[in-house]
Amino acid sequence: MAQHASLPGRDIHRIVTMARRCEEADGIAPFNEQTTLGLSKHPDKHRRHFVVPLNDSVIAYAGAELVGDVAEAELAVDPGHRNRGVGDRLLTSVLDWVKPGAVAPGAAELRVWAHGDLDVSKRFAAAHGFERARVLFQFSRELGGFPWPAAWPEGAGKNWPKGEAPAAVLADGVRLRPFRSGRDEAEWLRVNAAAFADHPEQGRWTAADLRARQEESWFDPDGLLIAEDDEGMLGFHWTKVEGGIGEVYVLGVDPRAQGTGLGRTLTLAGLAHLAAHGIQQVDLYADESNTKAVGLYRKQGFEVVRTDVQWAKPLTRG
């Protein structure tokens, strides 16, 4: 089993090919966006790639990263090579790396995402001493019949749909506009960090993380809606479109604007932007523990179509 600080292009291709085979067999992709983008990142002493090659292919892969005293990982084994101990050896390699000595200061806990909440993942997690720690719901709904507001505030886009629901409003002095690439990055990062200060992933985005998304083929600055007043950015709704399906990618509100109804208006604005561009289906993600958001999305007609689980295992140090 090979361990790398960074990956050559041929290995990235082989890992992506293996991931597609997993998706075909399991009905769900084995890696999230963070892991996929991490395949091509520059070397970092706090990140490692674990690759199991066979001839000219890769039959298993794990990506691991140390964040403070917590290690996070995702791993997958090619469907044709499962139940042969490959996953066990892959996990052992990850555990050996996150211990103190291999990487400072070492991890107190390992967290692993399993997408789809599959029975095979549950069995693997239980066999290795992991416990269910976090649940992420994917919601989805068709926009046909959505209860659109009767009016939109300043900065609304052209052709945004209208209906009979209460008007979408903003506080005095607040307006909407699209994101401006090359000008808004620093302010966006500030609001994102403040809005997601308690979120284990989103709140720690760096300029490099933002730039990586801006370089993706799906990025559209017009689909990243900004709410601002004379003092600066107050919130944003970043929408995403891939394969003809829209997504509430990131929705954030600065603490100084929370409780003003801005989140609701931004949510509606992003959905209207997608509808005005012909999008019929929209997906979004919310933590099971965020009961307020889960309740809001259910009231808006969104239904859970997928469940991802993060499994956690405490590690002995010393």
Rank of each mutant, 00 (worst) to 15 (best):
H46S: 15
E72T: 07
E23P: 03
S57Q: 14
G63E: 00
F31R: 02
F31W: 04
D69P: 13
L37S: 05
G27T: 06
P53E: 13
I59D: 01
R48W: 11
E65P: 04
L54W: 13
G80E: 13
F31G: 00
D78A: 11
G63Y: 12
A29M: 07
A73V: 11
H42G: 13
V52R: 14
D69M: 12
G80L: 06
N55I: 11
D88F: 06
D26Q: 08
E24V: 14
P79T: 05
N32H: 04
I59G: 00
D56P: 01
Y61V: 09
A64P: 10
D88L: 05
V86F: 02
V77H: 02
R47V: 14
H46T: 13
D56F: 00
D78L: 01
A76D: 00
L39I: 02
F31P: 00
V86P: 04
G87F: 01
A62F: 13
H46A: 15
R84H: 12
H49E: 10
R84K: 15
R82S: 05
A76P: 00
I59A: 00
P79N: 04
S57V: 14
A60Q: 06
V67H: 11
V70R: 07
A25V: 12
R82L: 02
I59Q: 06
G85H: 10
N32K: 07
L54C: 10
H81A: 03
E72S: 09
Y61D: 02
K45V: 14
N83L: 12
E33M: 09
A76G: 00
G85Y: 08
G68Q: 12
D69G: 12
A25P: 12
D88W: 04
G68T: 09
A25C: 10
R89W: 02
S57Y: 06
F50L: 14
A64G: 15
